[in-house]
Amino acid sequence: MAMFLDFEKPIAELEAKIKELQAMPEHPGVSIADDIARLEDKADLLLRQTYGRLTAWQKTQVARHQNRPRFNDYVKLLVEDFVPLAGDRAFSDDKAILGGMGRFRGRPVMVVGHEKGADTEGRIRHNFGMAKPEGYRKAIRLMELADRFGMAVITLIDTPGAFPGIEAEARGQSEAIARSTETCLKLSVPLVAVVVGEGGSGGAVALATANRVLMLEHAVYSVISPEGCASILWRSAERAQDAAAALKLTAQDLIKLGVIDAVVPEPLGGAHRDPKATVAAVGHAVASALDEFKGKDGPAIRRDRREKFLAMGRSGLVA
């Protein structure tokens, strides 16, 4: 079922009208085909206009859209012979972070990423993509495994942030995140991260300290959620729109700041309108990012990653 965001309302109304007309029985002598075509043009234009100038806050909503493709969609369409792997070998299996090995365009890879869940039940099972320490420790285990067997690592980022809870703190949430970031930096195999939805703070960085960081056109990546930032700095979560704009969290902002390497275009009207095309576009972008590391040895790959992050803030910032 299609879900429309608030600002998509005019588009939704037009599309409903088109559907209504299409459902009407044919009457000899009365042609509604022209009307339908006209309305379709209008809807298309409106969609193009709306998505051509989304605000940072609107993008945040698009990035959180529940019909966007998620971890399992990417794996299903991009990875052959997928073997899901589970557990941190210490405490449990955190379903907010999934992972496994498979074949991506012929080469063995390890895929690790957040999963928010498809429906209410799924969202509860996957804890809305908010991982606990055991999730990051599973990611560490899988990345180290990939490193030993020379598999490239692909990470898919889609999380509101790491889970804030008593048990997560008791089991060392901070340490797990820090160690996951450190593991990313140590890998001798190429690591390509794609922010496919929400890149929520440290919970995202833990998997996104990559050689190449790609971002979908309407994804967001931020140090804090706009709501969180607004409630601290504006003392009102109502000011989330202002905070979203101030935080510069869109893919378009981040490429200017030199934080990401490429923006992957989404289908017209956002990834949720055409998940298959979105997944295919991500596949192309990941493949060409991985190709950059063909023939490079482990130390060179590590150096590339380190220097990339070391340079952030030292140079290249537009004043």
Binding site: A178, E182, S201, G202, T209, Y221, S222, L247, L249, M312
Partner: peptide
């Protein structure tokens, strides 16, 4: 924590400081 006023660039100090540790 991170300095919110520097947005994503403050977040990037998490991996950057980790490079320092390395």
């Amino acid at each position: 924590g991170a300095r919110m006023q520097e947005g994503i660039l403050s977040l990037m100090q998490m991996p950057r400081s980790t490079v320092a540790v390395e």
